[in-house]
Design a binder for these strands. Structure first.
Lengths: 222, 222
DNA sequence: TTAATAAATTAGGTTAATCTAATTTATTTT
DNA sequence: AAAATAAATTAGATTAACCTAATTTATTAA
């Protein structure tokens, strides 16, 4: 079995690999894991010995297939536990991250699959992030940032790229919830402020920063 | 926060303290924790430094009030998660121990309490062991071993002292379940074999070893 | 009450995961 | 292309939790 630390490294490498291309830098890992660079170098060597990553000195790391499997398994756990916390225990979407960071390291494929069934095989976690299936397959989403939509275009709000409680709370306060249909009514040239229309017809003004943190499934205007 | 290891020591000390009197020996801990005696000595010194135990060189340890609080908290977690696994995920009572050993170390009082509510504030885990309340109060049970009952006496089966899957399976196979009413029909002098009558009137023969692992609430014959 | 046995501790090491300070390797900038 | 800057690595330590071998302290038996 892998240690919590190894699993956290694997998850971090996976996410950085997704976000910023193929090879992951020591410094990037040090930053997200909140440790110092020499600790990362050290750990990567150990993990390379276990064939979890391929490590190229002074260049960075990639996950091996084995490493990717473990990483995706942890992400599956994390997201399923988040659904449990929100759907079953009544937590709010901005409260579950730290708890899921603990629960994701429970080692039992069988438990994960039973939990999945208990939750009704959810496709996404409370933030809209897709849940990998038992084979580690993660459905490719075609969601785009709201900030890429042009005047008059529409979409359905399906996820966030900023998972901080502060941002999630802002969305709650503004009445913007997953599944909402959103139409771009206006984009202010000067500061890229968006005026959007929510399903309930109320117009809302959001900053570029917000528009750039919301994922939508674009509705093609046929 | 305490490490998993510390928590496991605390739990072990608590259980040995309950079972065998007040002071707990290094060797007893080494045995249940499956480590060697010098490791225990080492750890106990560290834990004494944190005021979790009082350590008397060459004599043994006791929990401090602080240590007891932590230990009971872990036991509460463990038993609540066992209820979750059985009641919600469909596990059998002989399958949940190892998983609960992992889940018990999730650090969140709030999660524990929400779980408790979700489960309907159960009083006992699937093996009949009482669940401490949020204040660490464990109801004193007045259950006795079936092996202490005399001919003709009755009781309700409320718990086990042997939690091994082998024993639990044996009970399943024999149709002996928590809550069953049991009457002692005969006790063989020669080998202390018990003949018992279950609620459904069927007579069953059990060994002394089995009778000595079953807890019952004795029904006083008025 | 001394001798034998059992239990516990000390001494000295190991491993995973971290750190700081110093050095080396890469990448930019001039 | 050389100099400056940034990133990464090496060297050497630390801490928690464990180990084995040797020694000391308790307990039990003769």
């Amino acid at each position: 079995m892998h240690s919590f630390t190894e699993e956290n490294y694997l998850k971090a490498i996976y996410k950085l690999q997704e976000a910023n291309g193929l090879i992951v830098a020591t410094s990037a890992l040090a930053q997200v894991l909140e440790v110092h660079a020499p600790s990362v170098t050290d750990m990567l060597k150990r993990m390379a010995g276990k064939k979890l990553v391929t490590y190229q000195k002074s260049k960075g790391v990639k996950l091996t297939e084995k490493g990717r499997q473990v990483a995706v398994g942890i992400i599956r756990n994390h997201r399923l536990w988040e659904v449990f916390l929100v759907d079953k225990l009544g937590y709010k979407w901005d409260e579950v991250h730290d708890l899921a960071e603990q629960l994701e390291h429970i080692h039992s494929e069988d438990l994960t699959n039973k939990l999945d069934m208990f939750l009704g095989f959810p496709k996404a976690d409370p933030h809209g992030d897709p849940i990998p299936d038992a084979n580690g397959i993660l459905p490719k989403s075609k969601a785009v940032l709201l900030s890429t939509l042009k005047m008059g275009e529409r979409g359905t709000f399906t996820g966030v790229t900023d998972h901080t409680p502060a941002f999630l709370n802002y969305l709650d306060k503004s009445g913007i919830s997953l599944g909402n249909s959103i139409k771009v009514k206006a984009i202010e040239e000067f500061d890229q402020t968006y005026t959007i229309q929510l399903k309930d017809k109320k117009d809302t003004v959001i900053s570029y920063k917000v528009a750039n943190s919301l994922l939508v499934n674009k509705v093609e205007t046929t």
